[in-house]
Design a protein around this nucleic acid. Structure first.
Lengths: 155, 155
DNA sequence: ATATAATTGAGAACGATTCTCAATAACTAT
DNA sequence: ATAGTTATTGAGAATCGTTCTCAATTATAT
């Protein structure tokens, strides 16, 4: 009944409550949907999935919940060029791990790229550090996306 | 009268015509605006700037032109999380050079980051190559963005 | 100069997202 | 447990960036 537990056992609720917010069935349904359905989901997809469990759910609530989770750093939101925001759990240390995206500009397919090797990770880390120093920026997250044409589309 | 010349002398028009498209004052105005106003412009900003020179210009034409230029690879389009597409010349070899963006999630300021050193460039290149091989993806472009809080906003 | 097809401007239409508001329900202090 | 306070909700309207429609215009090849 709580498949999102696997993501951060009893952490989601706690983190939500910790900010003076309340835990509700609607939010639970959204968390479940995010957990079950995997990566790069649109709000609409989250809504359809979550509404199966909690039919009374409204689309606006899904948007509100996704916004809240994003603010709390539990979810990351990104664009892939098709004018729909995408959401997924932001769990760099979780089962899914930190990853980036390959976007096919032809069929819009998104492939998760998790093969960053040690040097790459290290480079990113030091780059972020350098940017931080040079521009006085406190960097919280980054987005790396590759655009191209996938095998099936003739890449 | 043709400030965008500096970007790729007599290249823009040629490239547009080369695809069976026509060179028009409206498109010229958009090219000029992109050239004058610099990086990460919204369609609205391009419109306002271009309309100063060519008052008859319509917003839809700006969108159409930006779409065309993007298709031709002359302009790159990207998002920074505020639900407005941004456009700028895509001239990795030009004066401005290839760069990435630092986005302040507080004041929405965008800082261009052009300090990729040789190793970084090399790493990106080999990463793209590896992705290409592994997934059969033909990679055409990539987006790297860092999100955080700028100095002025308390970074 | 002419013909042909691309391009245009204006406004309507679209779609993702946000807002409004009265009703509901989670949490807190009792 | 209970009641009170206040966040949250669902539904639909509203917003706003972007795209579409269409008749009029105009760049280009001949």
């Amino acid at each position: 009944m709580s498949p999102h537990k696997e993501h951060n056992p009893n952490c989601c609720c706690r983190r939500i409550r910790g900010h003076g917010r309340r835990m509700t069935p609607a939010r639970h349904a959204v968390l479940d949907a995010l957990s079950e359905r995997g990566e790069h989901l649109t709000a609409e997809e989250v809504f359809r999935s979550a509404a199966r469990r909690y039919p009374n759910l409204g689309l606006a609530t899904v948007y509100r919940t996704l916004e809240l989770l994003t603010e709390l750093g539990m979810v990351s939101r990104f664009d892939t060029g098709d004018d729909k925001a995408r959401y997924e759990f932001a769990d760099p240390t979780g089962a899914k791990g930190h990853h980036h995206h390959l976007v096919c500009t032809s069929c819009r397919k998104i492939i998760d790229y998790k093969d960053f090797i040690k040097e790459e990770t290290e480079l990113l880390r030091s780059t972020e550090e350098g940017l931080s120093r040079k521009y006085g920026f406190k960097i919280n997250s980054h987005v790396i996306q590759f655009y191209g044409v996938c095998r099936e589309c003739g890449g």
